[in-house]
Nucleic acid binder design. Structure first.
Lengths: 237, 237
DNA sequence: TAGATTGTTAATCGATTAACAATC
DNA sequence: TAGATTGTTAATCGATTAACAATC
């Protein structure tokens, strides 16, 4: 009974913490930069220094996924690049569906930055009748009813959601029903989906709120901005 | 000597951890949703349940900034909304400069979603001669040389950076020299700036890489995607 | 009053850093 | 070999959760 379970080729012991994966993306970029300068090997200390990260952290993050280094030598850049690309899954193409052709959606469509890493938008969807049939970047806008057919035809497994907040959950349910495995959600609305679907949320106003908070609470800038702060009514203690 | 130090109106004991501020933004949205449904008070448990967060965490996060609740009653929604808006700094207007009118920049310009929370783009900059002088949304594109003048005139203290990676550090230095206090950085490039300047980075390809990683390492979806994974050369235990 | 819910302290859990034997 | 640097264990630090007296 027990060996009916299908062995995954690289043993997925457990999912790396979010923070680790984020740093691995940074290591990847930093390695590309070092390679562009002609460097061949690199130490955890060099990577860490360049990114403001502790060298033990760099080694531990990498060790999470396997043994990539050479004691006394460091990491061979080409080797590590290949390994990290494979770990992150960007050693392949990822055709994506872009759903919602409002301003943000159209911008993401034109944005270069994705394609570099194998992510490319392969199909467009919108429910707005005035948009269906329009062409952007050689791609025609489909109605959402076409999701099942187009997703299957183009072998799409990721979706970018740039629809209004009210529509987000409904559209997400639709794409999941078509077998989509991951969603990059730009709608300011948390999605409730089965755990088998990967979701990454990008909420731009949350980011701006964080920035405003930082600016107001960082020494130096507060003084001349603090003017509105006076009419506290209830500051007991 | 010692009382020459200027007392800040709300005592900034220490900066809240990033995670706390992020959750406060979520609480804010959730409170707005509950209020729209006509609710007047709310418990930490209700907030937490709606967002998938432990109730003790909700109380602790809020308690970080002061006492907003009423034992036995919960939180009065209007009161808490006002307090949270003030804490996050969105109880005011934030005129912003948008620098870089490539695709992403132009999209952010048209994107609604910012203005709701007091963030509004008040000036445009680009160094591309073909763009300088163009108009978008009633705003004319200035060359970067105009930064000092325009920023002072319009009382701008935040900048959105949507310039190419190569230009990011240089442009960031320029805006900081003009007295900008916070930067929302979309360039895939960590900025090296004085600690008095608030920086929030939004790297879209980092997000996509994380999504790809999740999709590949989540039970269920891997099987038919894992085909490229075979030629490992060095998997020694 | 009894029931509900806060703010906060103590206990747990997880993530970061320091230290070092093993290795090239 | 001596010096450098890894992978990993142990120590530290911080963040999350449980528990509960204080309060309405």
């Amino acid at each position: 009974m027990r060996d009916s379970r299908h062995e995954s080729p690289n043993p997925v012991e457990k999912l790396a913490p979010k923070a680790v994966v984020g740093r691995v993306s940074l290591y990847l970029r930093q390695l590309e930069a070092f390679r562009a300068q002609g460097q061949v090997t690199i130490s955890s200390n060099q990577i860490g220094t360049a990114l403001g990260i502790n060298d033990a952290q760099v080694r531990k993050d990498l060790a999470f996924f396997g043994q990539f280094g050479h004691p006394g030598v460091g990491y061979r850049i080409d080797e590590l690049l290949t390994a990290l690309r494979r770990i992150l899954g960007i050693d392949r193409d990822w055709p994506m569906a872009l759903i919602g052709l409002g301003n943000l959606g159209r911008a993401l469509l034109k944005y270069r930055g994705f394609g570099d890493r194998g992510f490319n938008i392969a199909a467009l969807f919108d429910n707005d009748q005035t948009k269906v049939g329009m062409r952007f970047n050689d791609l025609v806008v489909h109605p959402l009813d076409d999701l099942p057919k187009v997703i299957a035809d183009k072998n799409i497994c990721l979706a970018i959601l740039t629809v209004p907040a009210e529509a987000a959950q409904r559209v997400a349910d639709q794409v999941v029903a078509c077998g989509i495995l991951g969603i990059l959600n730009f709608a300011p609305m948390p999605l409730n989906l089965p755990p088998t679907v990967g979701v990454v949320a990008v909420d731009l106003s949350v980011q701006l709120e964080h920035l405003a908070y930082k600016v107001l609470n960082t020494q130096g800038g507060i003084s001349y901005l603090g003017s509105t702060f006076r009419d506290e009514h209830d500051s007991l203690e």
